[in-house]
């Protein structure tokens, strides 16, 4: 087998997905603004943009999986680069959530006169943190334990156990999302009820969104594990999903302690 290169780096082929993703993002933002203001066709452009982005994500990641599993471009150095990249991505996510916690503490540590000078604001109904919020935290933590189980199973070469562990991870994640939906449905405040509602739903809502992303990520890992793509030597995609899942877990702990519990009593 004579290959045309002898270095460890993956020089990627030209790809249409960066530009298609950019166009999708442009359509989404313009469509989103039009949708929220009295313009014709905003909803159509917004949906079109979102479909474009989702399509781009699907085919782009499909290409990456092909390059890795079917073409063998992900050498050790490439895997290292992918890990660094994902760590940087998670760092950026930490900053993203830090902003929501900062907003919440900014509004709650010194409540303004406009909301009665107290936190939670006067007259607002808040969730009991010891009901669904407390229940959902160990559910997500158990899901984190299951992904650790999957990790060790992959490292031990127990491929079937790893699939079971990922099924457990995803199932617990779906239960979490179900309970979160129930909590939102029953929650007395809404996002338009004062700065409390705004910060509460912004922080918990984005966390819930990240849980859904992590669930999809774990489902993909489960499928790839079932197909035998992931080996104990090479499972960068799984590692990234596991790191992401632990990150989502940690955010949930902070959410529970500071927003549900400290900020809700």
């Amino acid at each position: 087998m004579i290959e045309s290169q002898r270095h460890s780096y993956h020089l990627v082929d030209p790809s249409p997905w960066p530009i298609s993703g950019s166009l999708g993002a442009l359509a989404t933002t313009v469509g989103g603004v039009m949708y929220m203001h009295p313009f014709q066709g905003g909803a159509t452009l917004l949906s079109l943009g979102l479909i474009f982005i989702l399509y781009t994500m699907f085919v782009w990641w499909r290409d990456v999986l092909r390059e890795s599993t079917l073409e063998g471009h992900h050498t050790k150095v490439v895997q290292l680069g992918l890990r660094y990249g994902f760590i940087l991505f998670i760092v950026s996510e930490v900053m993203f959530f830090f902003a929501f916690f900062r907003a919440s503490f900014h509004s709650s540590l010194a409540p303004t006169v406009e909301i009665g000078g107290i936190w939670p604001p006067k007259g607002i109904g808040v969730l009991d943190p010891w009901e669904i919020p407390f229940l959902n935290t160990p559910i997500l933590l158990s899901s984190g334990a299951a992904v650790t189980w999957a990790h060790h199973a992959i490292l031990a070469g127990k491929e079937k156990r790893a699939v079971y562990a990922l099924v457990a991870t995803v199932s617990l994640a779906l239960v979490f999302t179900g309970f979160q939906g129930m909590e939102y449905y029953q929650a007395p405040p809404t996002i338009s009820d004062s700065i409390y509602g705004s910060t509460f739903f912004l922080a918990t809502g984005f966390h819930g969104f990240h849980v859904i992303i992590g669930t999809l990520f774990s489902i993909i890992c489960g499928i790839r594990q079932y197909l035998g793509h992931l080996t104990k030597e090479h499972h960068v995609g799984f590692e990234a999903a596991a790191w992401y899942w632990h990150f989502v877990d940690v955010v949930r702990l902070f959410l529970f302690v500071s927003i549900y519990w400290w900020g809700g009593i």
């Binding site: 087998m1 063998g72 030597e233």
Partner: peptide, 22 residues
């Protein structure tokens, strides 16, 4: 030998022979 192809496989094969391509 795990499933691997292309450069990834070359790298692993060299490693099994105790060599480093680089």
């Amino acid at each position: 030998m795990p499933i691997a192809t292309g450069h990834e496989r070359e790298e692993l094969e060299a490693e099994l022979e105790g060599k480093n391509l680089l």
